[in-house]
Amino acid sequence: MRTDIFARLDREPEPPKIEIPRMSRTRAALFGGTLAFYIAIVVAVLVSSSLVILDWKIMLFRPYQQWPDLHAFLDYFVVLGQRGPTAVMIAAWLGWRSWRQHTLRPLLVLGAALLALNVTVGAVKLGLGRLGPHYATQIGSAELFAGGDIFPSGHTANAVVTWGILAYLATTPRARRYLSIMSSVVALGVGATTVYLGTHWLSDVLLGWAAGLLILLGLPWFEPLIGRTERTVLGLRDRLRDRWRNRPRQTPVVPVAVGGAPWPVPVPQEVPHTGEEVCEPVGAGHPGRAGAPGRPVGQLAAAAQLTAQPRPHGVRSERTPVTPAGSRRPPRSRPLTGG
């Protein structure tokens, strides 16, 4: 009896229907509240309110110097918010789920979420151009429009979206509850770690949390587009598969003469070399020329090679003469004299 994990997975029944989240009233209310919080953070930084003063106090406190023992661990923990490694890990897991459930939806949802995150967060980063704590130039200033790309925190927003996708795609309420708790802990931890390391202001992290949560709450609006994309991709795959299976098979072409019989292929015959000068009478192969001098063995071998390998047809003057050169008339004798 097989007890390995793959045999057990093969026996597990697939979910009869995957529930697709809808934009409910609760979700719409959360989206509106998060959007208001997002706008409030941006305005507070633009007017250099008390939030900017709190940013400077935390930066001057230098948490990485107050608790240096945590530095080594948090340097590795913050990678959970880096876009490249986390996207590869989550894509591998969702790819396996796509294969098990025979659907492309998990991978398409991840792609749509990451695309929306990069566009929205990248636009705000480049538009506001805020400098990070390590590059700040004037104490108490917001450091905006200075060519930076730190506001909002990309690590924090990516941690919210990447790990929150697992809870969004969960198929059971229990799994969704546990995955929501896990993704929240990871996202909060990554954001706090960037403040500890001094790579982000506190306001950067707050805006990053809001930006990632907006993407997760707004994903149901992308579901119709995701469904059409999945149907298009699967339809294209089916058409290519049918075309590949129904392609005509090519049969080898055999050259046929006019009468229907295949062309004869000349096979050269080897002539054993005995060391003697053996000649073949030409009259045997050329009727009407009996008694003509024969050809040596070397010319027979050359003729066999010419028969096996065709050569271009030349004019009559270029052909090799079959008979020896010169006149075939006997030499003229001297006339007899005397009587």
Rank of each mutant, 00 (worst) to 15 (best):
229 T>P: 06
229 T>I: 11
231 R>M: 10
231 R>N: 12
233 V>I: 15
235 G>I: 01
235 G>A: 06
235 G>T: 05
236 L>N: 14
236 L>H: 14
240 L>R: 12
241 R>H: 04
241 R>I: 12
243 R>D: 03
243 R>W: 11
244 W>Q: 02
246 N>L: 14
246 N>C: 08
246 N>W: 10
247 R>V: 08
248 P>V: 08
248 P>N: 06
250 Q>I: 15
251 T>E: 06
252 P>G: 07
255 P>W: 06
255 P>E: 03
256 V>S: 06
256 V>L: 15
257 A>I: 03
258 V>P: 01
259 G>S: 15
259 G>D: 15
259 G>P: 02
259 G>I: 12
259 G>W: 11
260 G>Y: 08
261 A>Y: 07
262 P>V: 08
262 P>N: 03
264 P>M: 11
264 P>Q: 13
266 P>I: 11
267 V>Y: 04
267 V>G: 10
270 E>K: 04
270 E>M: 02
271 V>Y: 08
274 T>Q: 09
274 T>F: 12
275 G>V: 01
277 E>Y: 06
279 C>Y: 13
284 A>V: 12
284 A>E: 14
285 G>H: 02
285 G>W: 05
287 P>W: 04
287 P>Y: 05
287 P>N: 02
288 G>Q: 05
289 R>W: 06
292 A>Y: 00
293 P>W: 01
293 P>M: 03
295 R>W: 03
298 G>V: 02
300 L>W: 00
300 L>D: 04
303 A>K: 07
303 A>S: 00
304 A>P: 02
304 A>I: 08
305 Q>G: 04
306 L>H: 13
309 Q>N: 15
309 Q>G: 14
310 P>R: 15
311 R>E: 13
311 R>Q: 15
312 P>E: 03
313 H>Y: 12
314 G>L: 13
315 V>D: 15
315 V>K: 14
316 R>Q: 06
318 E>K: 01
318 E>I: 02
318 E>F: 01
318 E>N: 03
319 R>G: 05
320 T>F: 04
322 V>Q: 09
322 V>H: 08
323 T>K: 07
323 T>A: 07
324 P>Q: 13
325 A>P: 14
326 G>C: 10
